[in-house]
């Protein structure tokens, strides 16, 4: 009797979360999928996908999203790893430094965008600072950037805010790693760089994969900062299109369908990228 209860305990514990997901995740997701495959009359049709793919900005939004994800994830991982290595050391004030380094991660995207917009607007504090230290004569018109430079701009701003969230996962991994693994490396003849490359990174791999995947998922879904910095349409992203159809033109006949279809497209792309990444990182592990 007791044994049987024990056997079922984990399922009792999991049940509420699973039921919740049944109602509030699977149901809407299925609905979204279903509706994306029906036309306005409710008949099965691929019309939504055709419309999405034929949208002039779709290609740009797709490329931007991919480019943004790849570049920002790589950049953020490298920087976050370096920062984590630094903060893993023991020195005076490391706690304070950690606190300061963490601040940007909690700042809402809305505020991040405003923060940098007040910075990069023509009379913003960036120009002010540059003029004070005599680097420039005239204010630079930062916000007129478009295309690749605007994208890079967004990557930098995004990096500013999400770097700490990547960093803390790596830092926790480093701190939970047994110190003697590294020390054994040093004793047996490895340099700092070799210890990092041959010992720390491979042992940290599961943590790294976790951090990168979480980041990848979030990076594919960027839109808010772009919209608040540059407005809709200047640097289009996939999720930005969803926001566009819900926020700016919610009254169009097909806005609802378009946003649903876009979200299905985003999900499929995210899913594919994560799978590819997992495959890739698994293969690497075996070498």
């Amino acid at each position: 009797m007791k044994r049987r209860i024990k056997k079922w305990t984990p399922y009792f514990l999991l049940a509420p979360a699973l039921i919740y997901y049944g109602f509030f995740w699977i149901r809407p997701v299925i609905r979204a999928f279903y509706e994306s495959f029906t036309n306005l009359e409710g008949k099965m049709s691929l019309i939504n996908y055709i419309e999405v793919l034929n949208e002039p900005v779709f290609k740009e939004a797709f490329t931007n999203s991919m480019l943004f994800a790849v570049v920002s994830v790589i950049l953020q991982f490298v920087l976050a790893f370096m920062l984590a290595l630094l903060l893993n050391k023991k020195f005076k004030g490391v706690k304070l430094l950690l606190f300061i380094a963490l601040i940007p991660m909690a700042v809402p995207p809305t505020a991040v965008a405003i923060l940098w917009r007040t910075g990069f607007s023509t009379y913003g504090w960036v120009n002010n600072l540059l003029m004070h230290i005599n680097l420039i004569e005239q204010p630079i018109l930062w916000m007129t950037a478009d295309g690749t430079s605007a994208l890079m701009f967004l990557i930098l701003i995004d990096t500013w805010t999400v770097l700490p969230s990547v960093m803390i996962i790596l830092l926790a991994g480093l701190q939970n790693m047994h110190k003697e693994y590294e020390e054994a490396g040093y004793v047996f003849g490895a340099s700092k760089w070799q210890v990092t490359k041959d010992i720390v990174i491979p042992i940290l791999k599961p943590t790294i994969v976790t951090a990168v995947i979480l980041r990848l998922i979030a990076a594919m879904q960027i839109w808010m900062i772009s919209v608040m910095m540059f407005g809709f349409g200047r640097v289009p992203f996939l999720v930005e299109r969803i926001a566009y159809y819900t926020d700016i033109v919610p009254m169009l006949e097909n806005s609802y369908k378009m946003s649903l279809t876009y979200s299905v497209v985003v999900t499929v792309i995210v899913l594919t990228s994560v799978t590819i990444y997992l495959k890739f990182s698994n293969r690497q592990r075996r070498i």
Partner: peptide, 28 residues
């Protein structure tokens, strides 16, 4: 935005002490 940011400071202040506990054993 300044008003919006205030909780962020509280957040980081709390979270900095629990990084290991939070993310220590998180694995896929």
């Amino acid at each position: 935005a300044v008003i919006l940011i205030i909780p962020a400071l509280v957040f980081t202040f709390i979270i900095k002490n629990y990084i290991n506990q939070l993310w220590g054993d998180v694995k896929l």
